[in-house]
Design a protein around this nucleic acid. Structure first.
Lengths: 226, 226
DNA sequence: GATCGCGTGTCAATTCGGTGACGAACTGCT
DNA sequence: AGCAGTTCGTCACCGAATTGACACGCGATC
């Protein structure tokens, strides 16, 4: 659920403090000290956003960005030491999507990261409407319809249904649902899911006692019938 | 489908050489020697990006930028004679999106133009008239009508409505709205959106307490009903 | 029939959005 | 420059919606 950020920066102190700051903001950050290391790390596990310092020993930030561009369309933000127009231009030429100049406020950085993530998400496959029998789930519109009628769901119910509907037929465990709907840092009772499934059913099911959409798989979890 | 650039610069030699350079890069460039001429030219046929020299005889570049801002959200790049921080700040204050300092390389200029075009395109596609029941939103004309009557909206309210109306039915989060209406470098309170939505409703809704156009999606954000 | 997993009803705490008010900044005008 | 009217961003408060926890009961499974 958390977005992964790859941090490419040679100065260890800066790198670590940036990682901590990003983690504070709820991102999951991975560090790389140089261009090659970054490419390896990315190949091993692609990040959602890559942050590259333009000044790196060996393969510099621009080369790293170009190399990355060859294998992925991942959003890239260049970090330049000063507001040097040449750097900025070079960065954009190399295929970066945005840039920040040091020193920057972490707020500014996260704003730019969010902007890129949003754009990437909008461009990607995203969240088209999902149809389950007489149920329509429209993630974009924050809306669910049953046989044409809009039904009102709370945020949690809505996200729960979206998560289930996005994997029709697949059983999702309570742990999986907790992680995806409530966030990876939630440590509450697993029964919480039950309660919300129930509330969801009262709104979404014809006969909540005999659910036709959100069905229980005893001992495993819940799923929606395709 | 070439992008149109309006070039506002009093020195004819510079102006022509810039036009030629931009045309070499595949843009379609139009010239204006002064602020008034630029506004006329823009009114006659809006450009995709406007490039304004800050030093102009008569109406100076800043005034020109402000005047332009009053009628359009077109991306504006200011051109300053030297890297004078004061000029830069004044330019951004006047509503410019970016700036370059003379002398500049054409490469740098085109990189910035590309960046702005990309951002503008991401910000929102068309700006044709949008009709929502008894509401007409005319982004081009900076005007909104309710059942034929023009209603007066402030700049912020107008942009907010445009952004929502451009994605009818789609829920936009406060963050998304802040980013698109206020700019992604705005770090204020998310509640700011609420306040402006409220002000917007008092002007646009029949019964502001039971909005029919701009509706709240609790926990997610706001949307307009299609 | 014992046990475990799940459904159900209730309740208090929290979160969320609407609202009115206020001062600062800005605008247009003189 | 001075002035009056707008517009904008922030704040505090309120009511309602939402949420998570708990206790209890039922039915399936062994």
């Amino acid at each position: 659920m958390a977005n992964r950020i790859l941090l490419v920066e040679d100065d260890e102190r800066i790198r670590v403090s940036m990682r901590l700051a990003l983690e504070d903001e709820g991102y999951q950050a991975e560090e790389a000290a140089g261009g090659e290391e970054a490419l390896e790390a990315f190949a091993r596990r692609p990040a959602d956003v890559v942050l590259i310092d333009i000044m790196l020993p060996g393969m510099d930030g621009l080369d790293c960005c170009r190399a990355l561009r060859r294998v992925s369309a991942v959003p890239v933000i260049m970090v330049t030491a000063r507001s040097d127009t040449h750097d900025v231009v070079a960065g954009l030429e190399a295929g970066a999507d945005d840039y920040v100049t040091k020193p920057f406020m972490i707020k500014e950085l996260t704003a730019r990261i969010r902007a890129l993530l949003r754009r990437a998400r909008a461009a990607g496959p995203g969240s088209g409407p999902l149809v389950l029998g007489d149920l329509e789930v429209l993630p974009d519109q924050g809306m669910v319809r049953r046989s044409g009628e809009e039904v009102h769901l709370t945020r949690t119910e809505f996200r729960l249904l979206c998560e289930l509907a996005a994997n029709p037929g697949k059983v999702l465990s309570r742990e999986q649902l907790l992680e995806r709907v409530w966030g990876y840092d939630y440590f509450g009772d697993g029964r919480l899911v039950d309660v919300h499934v129930r509330r969801l059913r009262t709104k979404v099911e014809q006969d909540p006692a005999n659910p036709g959409h959100v069905v229980t798989v005893r001992g495993l979890g819940y799923k929606v019938v395709p």
